[in-house]
Simulated assay, not measured.
Amino acid sequence: MKPFLCLLLLLLMSCYQVERQCSDFQTGTFTSSITINDSTYHSVFTRTKDLQIETYKGHIDSTTVRWINDCEVVFRTINPKNMQERKDIHLKILTTTDSTYNFEYSYVGEKIKQKGTAKRIN
């Protein structure tokens, strides 16, 4: 009986797949929320296939957008003002709904990842 339950559980787990409609979120206007060390940061951004313009606390940043695949993108700051801004950012969409997506991001080459949520507003 035990081998049968293990086989059934294995089959059920292999059928479950997180649905991601990443291409639905490659362009548009969004809000994002990121929590780091018990602080939540909000921003608004508009993304086209090649450019993202983000507003955070009245500061506007522009980055180029390079899609690796439907769910992964690399951002490069257009006019970096310091060494931190010179680092590219890799973002991966983890899950999607009809109007939101959960993501993780990090500087390219670094192992520490942060997570957040973005919601389409337009």
Rank of each mutant, 00 (worst) to 15 (best):
H42S: 02
M83W: 07
D70Q: 09
P80L: 05
E72K: 08
V18A: 06
N122G: 15
C15R: 15
G116E: 03
K92V: 02
F25S: 04
N82Q: 04
K111R: 11
K115A: 10
C71V: 04
I34F: 06
C15S: 13
Y107C: 03
I78L: 12
T97W: 02
T55L: 06
S62H: 09
K113E: 07
E110K: 02
Q26G: 10
G109Q: 02
V108K: 07
K119V: 13
T97D: 03
E19Q: 15
I60C: 05
D24N: 12
S23L: 11
N102C: 14
I60D: 07
T35D: 05
T97F: 02
N37V: 06
I93T: 00
N122V: 13
V18F: 03
Y56H: 04
T95G: 02
D24W: 01
T63H: 06
Q21P: 06
L7E: 11
C15H: 08
R20T: 09
I93D: 00
S62I: 11
M1S: 12
M83F: 11
S33C: 12
G28H: 09
C22D: 11
Y107S: 06
K2S: 03
L94M: 10
V73Q: 02
Q17E: 08
Q26P: 10
C15N: 08
L7S: 12
L94N: 10
I121W: 10
I112G: 01
E54M: 06
V18I: 14
I53C: 00
S99Y: 09
D88W: 00
T117G: 06
R20P: 03
M13P: 00
L91W: 01
D38S: 07
A118H: 07
E19H: 14
N122W: 08
L8Y: 06
I36K: 11
N82L: 02
Y16K: 12
T64G: 08
P3A: 13
S23R: 14
A118N: 08
K92F: 02
W67S: 03
M13D: 07
R66H: 11
T48G: 08
Q52W: 00
C6A: 10
D24Q: 05
T97S: 13
M13S: 14
M83D: 15
F75A: 01
S39C: 13
C71I: 01
Y107E: 05
K87V: 04
D88A: 05
L7N: 05
D24L: 09
Q114A: 13
D61F: 06
N102S: 14
K81Q: 15
Q114Y: 13
L7D: 09
F30V: 11
H42Y: 04
M13Y: 13
G109T: 00
Y105N: 00
D50R: 15
S32G: 12
L7C: 10
C15F: 09
E104I: 10
M13R: 07
F45K: 01
N69T: 08
D50Q: 12
T29E: 14
D88L: 00
E110P: 00
N102M: 14
L8C: 15
Y41L: 12
E54N: 03
T27H: 12
E19G: 14
S32L: 06
T55F: 00
K49G: 02
V73I: 03
K111W: 05
E104A: 07
S62C: 11
Q26T: 15
R120F: 10
K81S: 13
K115F: 04
P3F: 12
T95K: 09
M1W: 04
